[in-house]
Design a protein around this nucleic acid. Structure first.
Lengths: 116, 116
DNA sequence: GAAAAACGTTACGCATGCGTTTCATTTTCG
DNA sequence: CGAAAATGAAACGCATGCGTAACGTTTTTC
């Protein structure tokens, strides 16, 4: 069930959510970090550094650093893959799920506010 | 005409647009810059540094720096207000309009892609 | 088993953003 | 007028992110 938006509605939605996020959330993730976080939570696991780098078309250190930062924020977790110890498997956390739940609520709320 | 989204649709929409933006656009504006830019284009003028700072709940230097950066990118323009020369009036540009037009298209495209 | 490949991390130098404070200019008010 | 207020910008020290290149560990390949 696709959603049909006018150009003005689309930008209004993006604006409302961005504004909420800037005003309410001190964390201020970059767009890249946001994309990584959403990928981890929306795409079925397992997730690896290499896989994420390929998916987002960025270099591996970008992923490593984003995981460092978001790990400290409690949004994701890393554990070594015991079956192939070269790999690192990226795990979801309760904190990350809560964070995205709030983001989703903001998007939905702004959607509800839209005028035609 | 409000839009009703499920939680999954809301996050899916945000994810799709973020991913597009990361993959396609080299500029990588911060969320704050994005909010400032959208405010300038969606809210009726005039816009001033002080007004933007109050609206977004950030300090004035944040606005000044964002305008510096986005000015170099050709997304906004600044001119002194001749009636009160302390003020700076922030102007839209063709480049900024095009940039947001593309963003709007991405949001609309992702909206169209949504599954129920 | 030794050499090669794969994976994630670290190191380096650089660019950009932040908050606080200070500044220069302009306007307002007594 | 001259002092006070208002506005936006610049200065400062700091934190964080970037791309490239080098590295350590583990697995694969021959």
């Amino acid at each position: 069930m696709p959603i049909e938006l006018t150009a003005s509605q689309a930008l209004g939605l993006w604006y409302g959510v961005s504004l909420d996020q800037v005003r309410m959330d001190g964390r201020d993730l970059t767009l890249r970090q946001m994309a990584i976080l959403l990928h981890i939570y929306l795409v079925p696991p397992p997730h690896t550094v290499r896989g994420l780098a390929a998916e987002l078309n960025v270099t591996k250190p970008v992923i490593t650093r984003a995981l460092d930062t978001m790990g400290e924020l409690g949004l994701v977790d890393r554990i070594r893959d015991e079956r192939d110890r070269r790999n690192v498997v990226i795990k979801r956390t309760v904190g990350g799920a809560l964070y995205l739940e709030k983001l989703g609520d903001r998007v939905r709320e702004q959607g509800r506010r839209l005028s035609p």
